[in-house]
Write a protein that binds this DNA or RNA. Structure first.
Lengths: 196, 196
DNA sequence: CCTACCGATCGGTAGG
DNA sequence: CCTACCGATCGGTAGG
């Protein structure tokens, strides 16, 4: 009896996974429910049984990403030098999973438009990332671990922007871009202490 | 007699201008020839008289941008400190024209996919920008104007990535992001001499 | 979950 | 440049 529910939950997760890879290929607007359904082994009407609209599926994709980030306890590291090290580790992890990076880079760009269904999600996401980065540089500044003259507010904003921009070039360039090295290089140019 | 040709040329330019603003709202894939035609005051079949395919119109949009950049003699400034100053001026110019920034930021993200008709265009564009930035930092390094320990190759890659990422956040954030200030801050953290 | 369908919209063509 | 059309595809619904 609970089996019915379990199968449904698994099916839902399958569909979300498939959606992520289709979004990665065609973007959100360029993806059709029929294509996602086909790769999931059901009809598009069947897909709409699980997710009543195209937007509901997108929301589920974004929700899953948030819960994965939370699982990884991304934000459990307090702002500071360790947070920056953790960010490099996260970048190194992402480099092993280009498909995922691709989805979110494309979605973020599509969602620049205020009417895009993921617009608010990314606005919140950027603000959180920025606040966290700025707080980290502020902690460094207080401890004298920041090079003199470096503004924590700009350094934080630039860190988030840099990660985004590097991802696009790394995705586009087919391996010619050393994402992690570039990120380390940026951070080292701001720090008065070794990054380790 | 030449009037017919002139009118055609004007019409073509009108259509390209309209296409730019529709791309800015909906991206390339999300834009329809019918919508671009409607705003240009013709039917979509009429538009196809001037641009035989959807891709041909995209190509015309990108071509125009290149010729505008060339007109501005973007690349006439030799690599070096002046080139970086010129880049800041270009960013300040772009901040006055969010619509144009929007189109190219969205197109660049869409074109990450290798099958996208603008993929090759952006790949070339990125490579040129990167080479130019790296060359500038190399010139600075030779003149001792770069802070010791700064790698010109990473600094150049990061400069291009940073500009891209800042544009996305600036577009998305609705004015909360100081793009030009952030760019200056990045450059100043790398230089051993004042940027002026 | 499926079959069967809807109205809307798409890029492109014919033929003038 | 337009009218008129094509085949394909879209998201979503009805009804089981």
């Amino acid at each position: 009896m609970a089996e019915g529910y379990l199968k449904g939950r698994i099916r839902r997760e399958d569909i979300i996974t498939t959606a992520v890879s289709v979004y990665a290929e065609a973007g959100y607007h360029g993806s059709s429910l029929r294509e996602i359904a086909r790769r999931s082994g059901i009809t598009h009407a069947g897909l709409l049984y699980y997710f009543p609209t195209k937007e509901a599926l997108l929301a589920a994709v974004l929700e899953r990403r948030d819960s994965e980030d939370t699982e990884r306890e991304h934000l459990a590291v307090p702002p500071g030098l360790d947070a920056l090290r953790h960010l490099i580790a996260l970048a190194a992890h992402n480099v092993q999973h280009p498909g995922i990076v691709d989805v979110y880079a494309r979605l973020a760009a599509e969602a620049v438009a205020a009417e895009h269904p993921a617009h608010d999600y990314f606005e919140r996401h950027y603000k959180m990332a920025r606040d966290y980065a700025v707080a980290s540089f502020q902690v460094l500044a207080e401890r004298g671990e920041l090079r003199p003259g470096v503004d924590p507010a700009y350094a934080g904003l630039n860190l988030v922007a840099l990660m985004d921009g590097l991802q696009v070039q790394w995705l586009s360039g087919g391996g010619a871009v050393d994402l992690v090295g570039a990120l380390r290089s940026y951070l080292e140019s701001l720090l008065a202490v070794p990054l380790g």
